[in-house]
Each structure stands twice: as C-alpha cells, then as structure tokens.
Amino acid sequence: MDDRRQHSRQNTELQLEVFDLNSGQRLGRVVDLSIDGFMLFSDTPVDVDSVIECRLVPAPPLDGLEEVKLGADCLWSRPGADDGHCWAGFHIIDLAEDQAAHLDNLLRHL
C-alpha cells in the first residue's frame, strides 16, 4: 500500500476507545494514532469514504488526559480474520483548536 502519511503513527499501549459522537455507540478501538489520522479495529464493518464524528476516550480514564472529539474520513477498510471485525484507516478532517491540544497531549503519552 502506498504510504502517504505526513506524520508517523504511534502504536499505543494505552487503550483508546472510539465512540460515535451523536449516538454514543462504541465503534472500536484505536490501534495507532498520529496528529492527522488513526487506524481503528472495529466490531462492525466500516464503509470507505464514510465520515464519522467521534470521541477518542482513554480507557480507563487517566489524570491529565482528556477525550478528543474529531471528525474523520475513512480512507480504507479491510475485513478482520474472523469476518466479524474490521480494520479501517481514518484521516482526521475536523479538529477544533482545543481538541488539537488534547490530541497533542494524548500523543505525548503514547
């Protein structure tokens, strides 16, 4: 796959859960993260070109780490080995200034 990332992604030992901002539904967990994107391991298939508004939430909560609210576009999606899960790559397309500071803080803790 052609890698066009501007920033390297960091694998995380910290568990980051992803929730739909509107419905509150859990979408999955972050596998790796950068200032401009993330890879999601999801319980359900994700459509390529779908745009989600979501929250990245550290689980369990950690002092000094805030959840991050953002909008992201799904660039690719692949079924998992068990066909019940999915891997998906997202590009962050909407991030308010205060949320960018939360994301930066989160990245420093990875």
Results as ranks from 00 to 15, higher is better:
R78Q: 15
D47W: 11
V48C: 09
L70S: 09
D32H: 02
V48P: 04
D63T: 09
F19M: 06
V31Y: 10
W76V: 03
I35A: 14
E13W: 08
D20Y: 10
K69V: 09
V68P: 00
A72L: 12
L65S: 07
P58L: 07
A88S: 06
R55F: 11
M39F: 03
P60Y: 10
H85S: 10
N22Y: 12
P61G: 06
N22E: 14
M39E: 08
E13I: 08
I52P: 01
V51C: 03
I92T: 09
L21H: 08
D82V: 05
T12I: 07
I52K: 06
Q6S: 12
L27T: 07
Q25V: 14
S77P: 15
V51T: 07
H85N: 04
G37M: 15
R4H: 14
E17S: 11
Q10A: 11
R29T: 05
F41M: 13
D63Q: 11
T44K: 07
H7C: 09
E53R: 03
L70G: 05
R9S: 02
S34V: 06
R55E: 13
R4Q: 15
F90E: 00
T12Y: 01
S77H: 08
D32A: 03
Q15M: 11
P61K: 10
D3A: 11
L27N: 03
D49K: 06
P79L: 05
K69M: 10
G80R: 03
G64Q: 15
A59D: 13
F19W: 04
W87D: 02
G64E: 15
G64H: 15
A72W: 08
E67I: 09
C86D: 00
H85F: 03
Q10I: 07
R26V: 07
L56Q: 00
L65G: 04
R78E: 15
G28I: 01
S42F: 03
D49M: 05
L70I: 11
Q6T: 11
C54M: 04
E66D: 12
P45V: 04
F19C: 02
G37R: 12
D63V: 09
L75K: 12
G71I: 10
R26D: 05
V30K: 00
V68R: 02
H85I: 00
F38N: 00
T12C: 03
E67N: 13
L14S: 01
A88E: 01
V48T: 15
L16F: 11
V57Q: 13
E67V: 10
E53P: 01
Q25F: 11
P79G: 05
G64T: 14
